[in-house]
Design a protein around this nucleic acid. Structure first.
Lengths: 340, 340
DNA sequence: CTGAAAGCGCTTACAG
DNA sequence: CTGAAAGCGCTTACAG
């Protein structure tokens, strides 16, 4: 019997069960290929020694890890949380483990995280959006690691996507805003550089203005990272500016909630003094007072579909494709018509 | 030259650089032990082939991964997000990668995740709280993987901790509540089973009542999972009950925010009809209207200290110990005195 | 400073 | 049904 002070190996199990390592391996991986008698003996040895397979060795020999990696821009606010939770649940029922890491919206860190996850044997990767250095996709392809971009829908891309049309969604919301009589509209957008979702949403607003024949030059846009505090700061700038907007459309709910807080701090009222809209419909949107008008994103469904699609890509080497989900408007009290 | 269609290995690099694999390995891991000439040749080959080390093999041979795992109860709400973000930042500056996974507050899933992370070679683990099957700690010890429990401070435990005194914090808040004249207090607590933080907080409330000589029998307690909706449901039960409380103390901000929403939906006012308190001081607490009285937890500091302590345990095999951080009260408008 | 070789802990054709 | 043995892709004493 080997040295029991250290972590037991396959070999230890084989020796105490009186079989070969091959048999132990089979008991663990395809038990039906071993007769019951030996199997029981082996399992007892496993139990007795408290044996757990060494993952590195297993990966190296088998080339599979049943691990899926996800790199999200941030864990700070709940934007990705609900979708990710559903993603994880679906993976779990299919026998996969999810490992998450965050890039803090920085391409360089994202690349490090992608490499870290690939190096650690991830069978597939979930990414957010598809706006990144093409070399990264080539790298993944070369490593044979399939990846799927969520939170976007793009049938024209080589990169498989699962998501919704950010641009059309925001355009629809904008049409609602203009139909309520708003002409002086301002935007608090997320940083558009390197963020296809933020860009698409901003374009969607412009689309909406065009449809309402509102000159684009009248549109004030502030870009700022997605943080509550930044929404507040941007809102203050807008509300104290020369030509105060009657509606502020925000790139997501986080910014919108910050903006709402600021309006209150300024002693003004939403929606009487200014209407505010968001995007995402995270839980926060129903918590704030007044409730926030926003675009509902099917987070849970997206997470679940993403998991199914990615596992397909991993297991069947399927190429992915583009999956479109529907968003919808949630009209709540933070938006109201201009009195006339 | 080997088959270029697949992922290049150390061997490929060695061959194209005309050196041994040992030398390539050294170039990558301790470059100063190789003369410049060969090093440059090797690095060129690495570049040319787009070589990335195989992690599994490296782990197996070197027994180090520079990976830290964290298992948190949930990614859904922001309770752990800020602390985790700071944890990750500190790890990153020290050259470690963080991999996160969530247990959905289920011990069985947590155990799976712990094993998954250990199997994938995590050098150390961050856990939340220390209320778990002792066998799990023995397993970790046997595997030689140090672990640290955050969000709790317990100098009497073998398990190293970094956190604050949940019980004393909640007791302090309770004293404030009773000092404002509240006698009819109800609690919306998280599930206490398997959750030392939830238990400690509830005990803290009882401590506070004792100090104010309020009989414990008068305390109504509802236990429910930490979700906004659950806070709302529990609140409805309390407000529609026979003996309506004047103050509802919640196990965390998430529950409190749900309770506040419900009060509004019932056409009542916080704090005129009922005072509400939370715990954590997540961003939400300042966003809701009125702002929420709560216990401020030093999330970022805790995350950072946890990273430093865990790396010490990993690198210096130090035993950890207990690190205490201070919480503090944030008195905001959701709590007000009983008029007399 | 560099190389030959053993070893890390598994899996999996290939025999029998 | 089971075993002997090669192989996965690295690292690291040990020589030289």
């Amino acid at each position: 019997m080997s040295d029991m002070r250290s972590v037991p190996t396959l070999d230890d199990v084989a020796r105490t069960a009186g079989v070969s390592t091959a048999t132990v391996s089979r008991c663990l991986n395809s038990p039906d290929r071993v007769v019951e008698g030996t199997r029981i003996r082996v399992m007892n040895a496993v139990e007795q020694l408290g044996y757990t397979p060494n993952f590195g060795a297993r990966v190296m020999a088998a080339k599979r890890t049943f691990t899926i990696g996800a790199i999200i821009p941030t864990m700070e606010n709940a934007i990705f949380a609900r979708g990710l939770q559903a993603f994880q649940e679906e993976l779990h029922t299919r026998g996969y483990t999810l490992l998450v890491s965050s890039s803090a919206y920085q391409p360089k860190i994202e690349e490090e995280q992608i490499r870290a996850l690939v190096a650690r044997g991830a069978d597939g990767l979930l990414l957010i959006g598809h706006d990144r250095d093409p070399a990264l996709y080539r790298y993944l392809q070369r490593q044979g690691v399939p990846s799927l971009s969520a939170w976007v829908y793009d049938p024209d891309s080589d990169q498989p996507t699962v998501g919704f049309d950010n641009r059309a969604s925001m355009c629809a919301l904008t049409e609602t805003v203009t139909s309520l009589g708003h002409r002086k509209i301002a935007v608090i957008s997320g940083i558009t550089e390197g963020n296809d979702r933020a860009r698409a949403r901003l374009e969607g607003i412009r689309d909406g203005l065009r449809k309402a024949a509102i000159p684009l030059e009248t549109l004030t846009v502030i870009e700022t990272p997605y943080e509550i505090e930044n929404g507040a700061v941007a809102c203050e700038t807008l509300m104290k500016g020369a030509d105060r907007p009657t509606a502020i459309m925000c790139g997501n709910d986080v910014l919108a909630v910050g903006a709402m807080r600021k309006v209150r701090e300024l002693g003004l009222s939403v929606p009487d003094d200014v209407s505010i809209t968001g995007f995402d419909d995270i839980e926060l949107a129903r918590i704030v007072n007044p409730p926030l008008t926003t675009v509902h994103v099917p987070h849970r469904d997206m997470g679940k579909r993403a998991a199914a699609a990615l596992i397909d890509m991993v297991e069947k080497r399927s190429s992915g494709g583009a999956i479109e989900l529907q968003s919808s408007l949630r009209l709540r009290e933070s938006l109201k018509a201009i009195p006339r």
